[in-house]
Design a protein around this nucleic acid. Structure first.
Lengths: 179, 179
DNA sequence: CTGCCCATGTAAATGGTTACATGATTGA
DNA sequence: TCAATCATGTAACCATTTACATGGGCAG
């Protein structure tokens, strides 16, 4: 379970509550590793049992109390071990490619619609990428190297969405000869 | 559940057993929609209940009997409806990007190792793509349009792995200044 | 006064992987 | 004789999503 390690990674930067972690996920790794609050709370409880984190209850007057989680020495050890182990090519669940593979029964026009709609979603995602994040990296990165790494992660998203967009545009264009 | 519709799509081409379906998945959509035999058999039983498929038992002498599944008119209707509905950008679970986001605690050298190993896996996948499939499309496609679609699906895999490889190579190279 | 932010959780369902289980045929 | 192919399935587990549930503070 990688969620456990992603949580450890964030807690390694600073103590956070489940709620904070959810916001962290959404602000950083959402597009390549999403998590719901349900998952986060449950995983934190497991991690407590495994002594990878400690819990500190913070009393608040004008807001509900929060549970701040701290990484333990055991947690740090696990995190460092996980970080250096090699990874496989990420699995994808690409519905559109499945549909195209099986599209013999539908009209060319409909396939083009599918592709055009997909292009629209990709353009939206790309502009979201452009508007956000770039400055955040400069502000929060704790070193030049960290800034380089965070930029690299952004670049990856950017490049892959652009690659996907180019493919979808070309495929829609090419399909026109079958109209 | 898309697995259901992927199965319907294949059964729409010809009647197949669970075993045949598994082979179909592996030969075609494996890299962007994998399925285990467990999943396939389970889903087929659900689909029988929903009357999307019919079962025909085929007696065999030198091999175990097989259960051939046929798509029903209801199944066809469902398939056609599913095929034309728009899709979202596919979700990814990209461990490497998570690690890089959290990599502040590990050596630059180790990060480069991670990236180089990843490059190796991508090159392997790419050469697998080059060696296979290209001829299969020509042989089995039932029309020029279908061949075009299947080629497009191949192109997508190709382009995205190449994009990913380029990114990983450049990132590894760029990291050298922090050694 | 409406709706979002804070902050936590449970329950149920669905989706997916891994391991266990059987047993004949065929080719190296 | 060893491994692969053919062909089916169950059981247990892990991962993920969706819905249900609560309740005060604060801004427009």
């Amino acid at each position: 379970m990688s969620l456990k390690f992603a949580i450890l990674g964030f807690l390694d930067m600073m103590p956070l509550s489940g709620y904070d972690l959810k916001k962290m996920f959404d602000a950083t790794v959402k597009f390549f590793w999403s998590a719901t609050h349900t998952q986060i709370y449950r995983t934190l409880n497991q991690m407590l049992d495994e002594k990878l984190v400690d819990q500190e209850i913070v009393q608040q007057t004008y807001h509900p109390n929060k549970k701040l989680y701290h990484i333990t020495p055991d947690g740090e050890k696990e995190l460092l071990r996980w970080l250096v182990t090699a990874v496989d090519i990420p699995p994808v669940r690409h519905k559109l490619l499945v549909k195209i593979t099986l599209a013999d029964r539908i009209d060319t026009e409909k396939i083009i619609d599918l592709l055009n709609d997909y292009c629209g979603k990709l353009r939206e995602r790309l502009s979201l990428y452009k508007s956000k994040n770039v400055h955040i990296n400069e502000e929060y990165a704790r070193s030049e190297r960290e800034k380089f790494l965070w930029d690299a992660v952004l670049d990856n998203g950017f490049a892959s969405y652009e690659c996907e967009l180019k493919w979808a545009e070309e495929t829609a264009e090419g399909l026109k000869k079958f109209l």
